[in-house]
Computed example of a mutant assay.
Amino acid sequence: MKKFWEMKQSANNANEAEIFIYGDIVRYQWDEQDTTASSFQKDLKALGDSINQINLHVNCPGGAVFEGIAIGNMMKHHKANVTAYVDALAASIASVIVASADKIIMPENSMLMIHNPWMGVRGNAKDFRKAADDLDKIAESSVITYLSKAGAKLTEERIKQIMDDETWLTAKEAQEIGLCDEVMESNQIAACISDELFQKYSNVPEILNQSIDKSKDNEFRKKLIADATQNSALIGTILGGL
């Protein structure tokens, strides 16, 4: 099982680190003690106490809610300033991780996707009622994070409607509601979105469906991997999930 993240100290600045979250956020136990969240925390601690700037790069369709909440809280409470870059997509719980950063930067062709949490349920009517109540409580933790980041630009009523509607936000739309601080020029990597994403969500924008040339996508991914491997200042190994 590969980790879905990669952390590296910047070669140009001993006080700066790069973190990449590429791929599904999974809940996994590598051994008896080492779970996803604890492993992420150990890697974060291994960067050292001198780190005062973290550049968090995200291209992620979402995944395990509680693992994502834990990672977001680690970012929020880290002593370093955290700048999140949405390299392509931050969907579902990945958008909560991004919202935990001090600053969010999005290329103009990247997106956030915000929705209510899901849960697979088996059992009787009582089980389903409890599951619905649990999902409401889980959603509330995301609401708190979004509102904390957006400030006066976003109301609780508005963010709950956004979540109910499974809303896909462009960089400019995210900026309008306080979930993006800076919009930058289009990023080529934003075209690299997995086919698997479209099977998970119901309201994927048509422009994303049309933008992928499947015959070229694999070659593009191979080029990204090759480029990343050569960039020893940022990535020493192929990123999990790319």
Score class of each variant (00 low, 15 high):
I189F: 15
F198A: 07
S142A: 10
D213L: 07
N124A: 08
H115S: 03
A171L: 10
A171Y: 11
K137M: 14
I162N: 09
R122L: 09
W118E: 10
K130P: 00
E206V: 08
L135T: 07
L208F: 15
R158G: 00
A131I: 08
E166F: 04
E140C: 05
I144A: 03
A174C: 03
L169S: 12
N116C: 07
Q161M: 08
Q199C: 02
I189R: 03
I189T: 06
D164V: 03
Q210V: 05
I189Q: 08
A190K: 03
T167E: 07
D136C: 04
A125D: 14
Q161L: 06
S194M: 10
C192D: 10
A191Q: 11
D127F: 07
S211Q: 13
A191L: 11
I138W: 11
H115P: 00
A174R: 01
G120A: 09
I212M: 14
S211A: 12
E185Q: 08
S186W: 02
D213M: 05
F128D: 02
N203F: 13
E156C: 06
A171H: 09
N116V: 00
I177H: 02
L154Y: 13
C180L: 02
K172Q: 13
T145C: 07
L197W: 03
D165N: 13
S211Y: 12
C180W: 03
D195C: 03
K172H: 12
E196D: 11
E176Y: 06
Q210L: 15
